[in-house]
Design a protein around this nucleic acid. Structure first.
Ligand SMILES: [Mn+2]
Ligand SMILES: [Mn+2]
Ligand SMILES: [Zn+2]
Ligand SMILES: [Zn+2]
Lengths: 137, 137
DNA sequence: TCAACAGTTTAGAACTATTATAATGTAGAA
DNA sequence: TTCTACATTATAATAGTTCTAAACTGTTGA
């Protein structure tokens, strides 16, 4: 709520102007104890609950993309009708509940490091992600 | 080309009527030495090269979904503007070239089995997939 | 053999997540 | 304060996918 100067600094130091829309979105995304996963639609709902000043859909998309580019958000590779984003930018993997359409973090300690013993010449690895799809037992 | 009776049997035995559209799509997808990845758009192009009788887009979607449901195709989890499918239904993982937007199989022997030491109560594992994103070095 | 029916194909409309546009507004520098 | 590049916004456009409902066809069994 109060300590927005932190977000203002963060935004400014990454070359993003600290507009009131971006600060509000920072509050919603990063003022939480726990990290979480969200879709653009989820975020729009959170925003409308959190404030009376509405933020346009275009700005929500712009901001999420800007934050992703700066490394403040990750996008989770999943086949879905919409993109999932993650406020947890540390290295970790996911369960995807196909019934509830819900992403769940897998603690990195619970996955043995993935060893890939082959490379593509001329390419460097950007990320290695495990997706465990689950369904009702 | 000739040996369509195999596909006819395959389709019939899985409860799908062997229509000429489905048989043609079987030929295109499964009459190859190597397995491959494709988007719906890729498949539409392959079809128009392979035949004069056009197959409607709706049928292409219907057929791919039906084949996926029967386990003849897999969908690859990826963030993209379109879905990727795989004629290789055996267990394996992927590189995704973000520059070329190309999927590349990783031989299963080149990846140590992924050990996930946690479960979700009431859920069973459907798949465990590794996606290695690569980019120009 | 062939009528009947359920399954299938089809063109086109509808849907929906996302991106583009271009006018208006604003943060920060000078 | 003034200027300008950056940002927001409403809205249109785009594009992949799904839906609709009419026409068509493979299969069954009388
Ligand atoms: Mn959710
Ligand atoms: Mn391709
Ligand atoms: Zn996560
Ligand atoms: Zn593959």
């Amino acid at each position: 709520m109060l300590n927005n100067s932190h977000y203002i600094d963060k935004l400014r130091s990454s070359g993003l102007r600290p507009t009131k829309q971006r600060i509000k979105i920072c509050e919603i995304l990063f003022n939480t104890e726990k990290t979480f996963h969200f879709t653009i639609n989820d975020l729009v709902k959170k925003i409308s609950k959190a404030t009376n000043d509405k933020i346009s859909l275009a700005t929500v998309y712009n901001t999420v993309h800007a934050f992703k580019k700066k490394g403040y958000l990750k996008e989770i590779p999943i086949n879905s009708d919409q993109s999932y984003f993650d406020t947890n930018t540390s290295h970790h993997h996911h369960f995807y509940d196909e019934n509830q359409k819900d992403l769940i973090d897998i603690d990195d300690a619970d996955v043995e490091p993935v060893k890939v013993n082959t490379r593509i010449p001329g390419k460097k690895i950007k990320s290695v992600e495990v997706l465990v799809k689950v369904e009702d037992a």
